[in-house]
Simulated scan of single mutants.
Amino acid sequence: MKQKPQITLTDIAKKLNISKVAVSKALRDHSDISIKTKTRVKKMAVELGYVPNYIARNLSAKKSNTIGLVVPKIAHHFFAEAIEAIYETAYQNNYEIIMTVSQENTEHEQKHIETLLAMRVDGLLVSTTEQTDDSFVFEKVRQQGVPMVFFDRVINGIGFNCITTEDRKGSYKALKYLIKSGYTKIAHLAGYQSTNIGLNRAIGFKDAMKESGLSVKSNWFIEGGIAEIDGYEGFKRMYETGSLPEVVFTVTFPVALGVLQAAKEKKLSIPGDLDLLCFGGSGYNSFLQPSISYIKQPIREIGSTATNLVIEQIQSPKESVRRNIKLPTELVICDTCKEKD
C-alpha cells in the first residue's frame, strides 16, 4: 500500500489562505494569534490529518520536551514497574518518553544512545546492560551537554547523577537476618562484579558473613548473569560439587526462579531441603509455591526520582547539583527462610 504524502504546515496555510508562520503559531497556542484563528487552524489540521514532525521541530527549537530512555529489558518486573513510573512522572511534567531496549547488548546500548542524541532529546535516563564497562558513549553525552541520569544499573565515577537502592546495605541486613535465624551454610549466586548491583550486593553478603565469623566457600560463591538461566546453571554447578548449603541468596529474583527450576529437577524440596532468598521481588511471587522471601526495592520511587532529577537538570542546569541517591530496601519474609525453631 502506497503511503500518502504527509500533510505540512504549508498545506494548512494554503487551505486557510494565511501564512505558514501563523499556522505554526496557532498550533503552538502562541499569544500572537487570535482564538478564532487558532480554532480554524486546529480544525483544518484535524480534517487534513496533520501530524507534527517532531524531529524537524526539534532541529529548529531549543527544547523538544522529550526524554530518551534506555533499558536493558522490559520483560522484567523491575523494569516494567520502573518504566511505568517514568512515563507517569514525565507526562505530569509535560514530557514525552522515547524508549529503547538494549536487550543486554552493549552495542545496541551505544547505538540507542547515539540515535536519541541525534533526535535531540532534552535528557537521557539510562540503566546499563549487565556487561557495560566502557564509558565512551557516555563521554559523548557529556560533550554534547545533554543531562543524563543513571538508574538501578549505573556507572559510578564519570560525573553523572545516579539513582540506586542500598544494594550493599540491603544484602548485609538480609544476611544478618539469615544468620540470626540460625543459618550458617549460605551460598551466593552473584551478578557480574563489573556491575554496581553485582558488586555491591556481593560485598554486603561477604561483609555479613565475615562479621559473623562465617567463611564463604569458593564453590558456594558463583559469579554470573542476572537472568533465570544464570540461576539454573549456577545451581546445577553447585549441586554437582556434592556439597549444598542450607540457603542460597541470589542477586535477582529471576536468578532465584532459575534455582527453583533446577532444584525441582534434582528432586530437592524448597524450603525443606534448601532455602532461598533473593534481591528484588515480583508481582507474581505470591502465586509461587513456595513464595520466595526477598529484599524489596522501592521501584516506583527509583523511576520517579530519576525522571524528576533529569527534568530538574534540563530546566535548571546551572542550579543542578550532582547527586548519588541510594534508596532504602525492606526485607520481606514469605514461605522461605523463616526463623529456625
Rank of each mutant, 00 (worst) to 15 (best):
A61W: 06
E339C: 01
V154P: 10
N219S: 14
H76T: 02
I270P: 01
K338G: 05
G191F: 12
D275R: 01
E301D: 11
D122F: 02
P328H: 02
E81F: 00
I333S: 06
A80W: 06
A61M: 15
K296F: 03
F78C: 02
A262P: 07
E96R: 07
Q289D: 10
L116T: 00
S127A: 10
K267C: 06
E301G: 02
S243V: 14
M99C: 09
K338M: 06
V149Y: 07
K14E: 15
K185W: 07
V101Q: 14
E223N: 15
T305F: 08
A90M: 08
F279I: 11
C334P: 02
S19Q: 14
G242F: 01
G68S: 00
N105S: 13
K217C: 13
P5V: 08
K318A: 10
D167F: 13
L9R: 11
A208D: 08
V137H: 06
G231K: 08
S212I: 09
Y239E: 03
K36W: 10
T250V: 05
I83S: 03
C278D: 02
V154T: 14
S291R: 00
Y183H: 08
L257R: 04
M238H: 10
G191L: 11
D275N: 14
R237K: 15
I314A: 06
I226M: 15
D133A: 03
R322C: 13
T250L: 01
I98E: 05
T128I: 13
Y50P: 15
K20C: 09
L125D: 05
N65P: 02
K4E: 15
K264G: 09
E166S: 07
S218N: 15
V51H: 14
K4A: 07
S34P: 12
G49K: 02
I7K: 13
V216M: 11
K266C: 07
T8I: 09
N308V: 13
K38Q: 09
L277G: 03
A263C: 04
R120F: 02
P72M: 05
F138Q: 00
T165Y: 10
L9G: 09
I333Q: 01
E246N: 00
L189D: 10
F235A: 04
K4P: 06
S181V: 08
F138A: 03
C334V: 05
K4R: 08
V216F: 03
S316Y: 15
S34V: 15
T100Q: 06
N156W: 08
M148K: 08
N161V: 13
G258R: 04
Q143D: 11
A227N: 14
D133T: 10
A90Q: 05
A22C: 04
P5E: 08
E47R: 13
I158G: 07
K140I: 03
D341R: 13
K264Y: 11
A190C: 11
E107Y: 15
N196L: 13
L276P: 04
S24I: 06
T37P: 10
I226S: 12
L257V: 00
L16R: 09
D275S: 14
R57E: 12
Y239L: 15
S102E: 04
I67W: 03
K180A: 07
K73I: 07
M1Y: 15
I302S: 03
T106D: 12
I311H: 07
